[in-house]
């Protein structure tokens, strides 16, 4: 019985809300027509009507008019310009939606406006990550600017958003990109240094990020391995000894230190356990190698990591 009463109350509230919206929209023919055309995916016609609506004295003061105008631009962006970082439709959508938020009756449409803004914010975030993977110089201005746009819109759409995880993802993405650039030409130290800086910045934001410690360790370990790979029949004995002392010091004082931090934070992560085992092997630490090999076996037997990835 109680449930029945609750349902009746709920349906009543919803009906009342629709009636209110309908009454409010009665004097907005242009906006309503734009919304209808947009629903029918007739975007060009919808945009024309929405443009007329925002220039109409009768309709331009209403938040809903600006919301529809922004929404139409947003839909056109999705259809035609998704991934285009210079999209004019996205900029127009943003402007109109922010304008809708400033209208006197914004509160009535706030939820929908914020949802649209959140979507736009997400596209800026996505673009920031994508652009971080294609930069070829040292300039990070494009991904940084796109990320700032994401933050700006999210602060309106979802006030109080915690950006830490997003910031870390951007730094990680940049770090991975620089690492990949370094792998293409390991003689260019600049890429390695930039990758390290990005992971160090993650640790500065969050000193419990095991991935950042792992990635820092991998950079230094790779650097040491690249040095060892230079050993060959033409290497002089003095050079070989100097090279291996430099490489082993790199592993001992940097790579292993960071890998141990990663391990302390994620002792059952397969790649970390394998990583620490490899570093001990590179330092000829027999007992440690045996210990971490046993750990890998245990994690495999417990189904926590896959066997084929950690042979």
């Amino acid at each position: 019985m109680g449930n029945r009463i609750n349902w009746q109350t709920y349906i009543g509230v919803v009906l009342l809300w629709f009636i209110q919206l309908g009454m409010a929209a009665q004097g907005m023919p242009l906006t309503n027509e734009a919304a209808k055309l947009c629903q029918q995916k007739s975007y060009a016609a919808a945009l024309k009507k929405a443009d007329e609506a925002i220039h109409s004295d009768a309709e331009s003061r209403d938040a809903y008019t600006w919301y529809v105008h922004g929404f139409v631009h947003k839909e056109i962006y999705k259809e035609e310009e998704l991934g285009n970082r210079q999209s004019t439709h996205r900029m127009q959508a943003e402007e109109s939606l922010l304008r809708a938020m400033m209208a006197e009756n914004a509160a009535r449409h706030e939820e929908m406006i914020k949802l649209a803004l959140k979507y736009l914010a997400s596209t800026y975030y996505n673009d920031a990550l994508q652009s971080s993977q294609v930069i070829s110089g040292e300039g990070e201005s494009t991904p940084r600017k796109l990320f700032a746009d994401f933050e700006r819109l999210m602060n309106v759409a979802v006030p109080g958003t915690d950006f830490l995880s997003y910031q870390k993802e951007l730094e990680k993405s940049l770090g991975q990109h620089y690492f990949a650039m370094w792998q293409r030409d390991t003689e260019i130290a600049k890429w390695r240094e930039l990758a390290s800086k990005r992971y160090e910045s993650i640790i500065a934001m969050d000193n419990t990020d095991s991935d950042a410690y792992y990635n820092l360790a991998v950079i230094d370990y790779n650097r040491a391995v690249f040095m060892y790979r230079k050993l060959g029949p033409d290497t002089d004995m003095f050079d070989a000894i100097t090279l291996q002392e430099e490489a082993s010091a790199l592993i001992r004082t940097r790579a292993l230190v960071n890998m141990e931090k990663a391990y302390a934070l994620a002792p059952e992560k397969g790649e970390v356990v394998r990583g620490i085992m490899m570093m001990h092997r590179a330092l000829d630490h027999e007992k440690d190698v045996a210990y971490f090999k046993a750990e890998i076996e245990r994690l495999i037997s417990e189904g926590k990591i896959k066997a084929d990835q950690h042979k």
Binding site: L129, F179, N215, Y228, Q244
Partner: peptide, 20 residues
């Protein structure tokens, strides 16, 4: 992106130096 994450090379550096 994470699937192309940084990985540890398999090289056995101890074996490399001993061989040299």
């Amino acid at each position: 992106m994470s699937s192309s994450a940084q990985s540890i090379p398999d090289d056995n550096t101890m074996a490399m130096i001993r061989a040299n």
